[in-house]
Design a binder for these strands. Structure first.
Lengths: 110, 110
DNA sequence: TTAATATATCGTAATATTGCAATGTAATAA
DNA sequence: TTATTACATTGCAATATTACGATATATTAA
């Protein structure tokens, strides 16, 4: 049916999946990496850097903004985007908690 | 067009996006969390635990297996799945590298 | 005001994902 | 062999995602 049955899962499970979904596109990873290097960027620069159309970049920025991992401030005629420090660390913590909870013991079967 | 332009991005960007995509569903997060608790599980147990149909669980297990984060071994009539330690740490490292490369300085604009 | 610039939104086509019933396959039990 | 059990695969319907041209909006410059 193409529709996730969110009600079957815990809030944490849905939340983690939502964050992962936003990271689940190379263009959005590229935008994040660009921000990690330069601290700030705008739509038109990313259009030149990534090679996707303006509307497409705008859409990816919107998704990143929607979960709060980046924020945008109007700067004259353009919009400066940067990482939202608080949300970044929140998402980082959730992912780290998941990945650190594995104790690496091989299971008895393999 | 619904098709990601992978050729525009680096191998790392595509790789990270691929791993994130597999985590981008609460059922797959739930399966992973189940494995973190119990070390091993099989399809039929997950069907009871998650409340999705057998075919659906099988499909999610397949996607997790495809990127190598879990592995399955035939045990009589059933299949035991467990976390693949090596791949787990590989994916963990990639994610940690990304999330640790942010120095938290607020940008000059916001 | 009008033009230029930058970004957002809308609409749409192509493709991907989710979920499940039905069916296929493979191993053990009777 | 035949039944049973567990899982995978197929096929399909519903929905989501990706990408972009066209257009709307908003700010500054002339």
């Amino acid at each position: 049916m193409g529709v996730t049955k969110s009600d079957l899962f815990t809030e944490t499970q849905n939340e983690l999946a939502t964050y992962a979904k936003v990271l689940a596109h190379p263009a959005r990873i590229a935008i994040i990496q660009y921000l990690l290097r330069t601290n700030t960027c705008c739509n038109s620069i990313l259009v030149g850097d990534l090679g996707l159309a303006q509307a497409t970049i705008s859409q990816h920025l919107k998704e990143l903004k929607n979960i709060g991992i980046i924020q945008g401030t109007v700067e004259g005629v353009s919009v400066n985007y940067c990482i939202n420090s608080e949300k970044w660390h929140y998402i980082k913590e959730m992912l780290f908690e998941l990945f650190e909870s594995y104790e690496s013991q091989n299971c008895s079967n393999c």
